[in-house]
Each structure stands twice: as C-alpha cells, then as structure tokens.
Amino acid sequence: MIATKSIQFSYEGVPAFEIPDIEIKAGEALLVLGKSGSGKTTFLNILGGLLAPEKGEILIDGISLYSLKGQNLDKFRGKNIGIVFQKPHILGPLSVAENIALPHFFSKSSHSDNVDHYLKELGILDKKNARINTLSEGEAQRVSIARALVNEPKIILADEPTASLDDENAKIVVDLLKTQAAKLKAALVIVTHDQRIKNEINQSITLKRKDL
C-alpha cells in the first residue's frame, strides 16, 4: 500500500537522516522508533505529503506522491492519508461533528454520511455537538482520530499519538488506531518513543541520524 525508495532529507547545518526503505501492505502496521532529533516526525511529514524529500520516491497504491503538485497533492492527501497529530489540534470555532466532517468538505469526498459512524466507533457520539473546549484530552484525541478516519484513507499516519495521554487513554487510542486501520484495510504508521506502544505492534524500524 505504501512504499518508500531511498528517501533523503536533511536540515541545513544538520547531518542527513538515515531513512531505510519501507513497505507496508494493506492492513499492516509499522512502528517508527528513534531518539528525538532522529527525524521521526520529518519522516512522517514526508510520508504524509506535507514535506517533499530531497531525493527518493513515495509510492502510495502505485502513485508517486510527490509527482502530484499543488491542489492535486492536497486533495490526494485529504482523500487517501489520515494524519493523527501528537496534540489533537481540533479547530476551536467548530463543533465536534463539524471538525470531523471537515475533510469531506476540503477533499470533496463522497463518504459524507459516515460522521456518525465514526463518532460511534470511537465512543464519542454523545459529544457530537459539544464545544471543543469542553472535551477531555482523551476525547479530543479520539475526535482527531475520527477526523483522520472519516475519508476512509489508505494510509493512517500517527505522530506520537499517545504522548500526552495517561496509560488508560493511551491504550484506548492505540487499540482504536489498530482496529480501525484493520477495518479499513489501511496501512498504519505510528511514530513514537512511547514504551507503552512497543508491545502492541510487531513490525518496527528505528531511525538514526548519522552523528547520533
């Protein structure tokens, strides 16, 4: 479902990251580990079509991600890639349901009737019309997961999704990501240094920076 070929990326003044080639099939999950500064988030941004690599290629379902430009890349991302950030980053002026429906609007997706379905799947249906500032941290993260799932993407990327959660919520979030990815037959990539997740997912790679 997603494969990378010899990706290279470096920030100015910092030695380049060593990024191994990966290939994840539909329904599989991969853990990306590494110390902070090893390029985990950069790698995730590259996979998510948010940051073009200096060299190399990302193939999603056979399509070379960065051969798409401008709006096409944005719409492709919206339709096929669901991203869960470290912090929920839900849009404050909108309600829970409106936040979750937003990817439909931006990518003009056809799945526009599944907001309630995902609210239910993630156990936050009762928060449908709640204001964002009334949500707990765990609930907010579940809203952001629902937002990543609602376009039924082929790839789900999660950047430290459990970092700010307690043990109970961390477990719920990882379980939700795993089961929902499996249901959608999507490839799941979780970037983390959270020890609590390591036992939940078998496949993993570790990123290094040349000087670390």
Binding site: G48, L50, D74, H89, L102, F106, S107, A148
Partner: peptide
C-alpha cells in the same frame, strides 16, 4: 497558523 496547517493536512489547498 496551526488551524490552517491542520486544514492543509486534511486536504485544504493553498487557494482555499
């Protein structure tokens, strides 16, 4: 800025 970046991440184009 963050809200805008999130919008881009979920499929909004620069023009939008």
């Amino acid at each position: 800025k963050y809200d805008l970046a999130v919008m881009r991440a979920i499929g909004a184009s620069k023009e939008q």
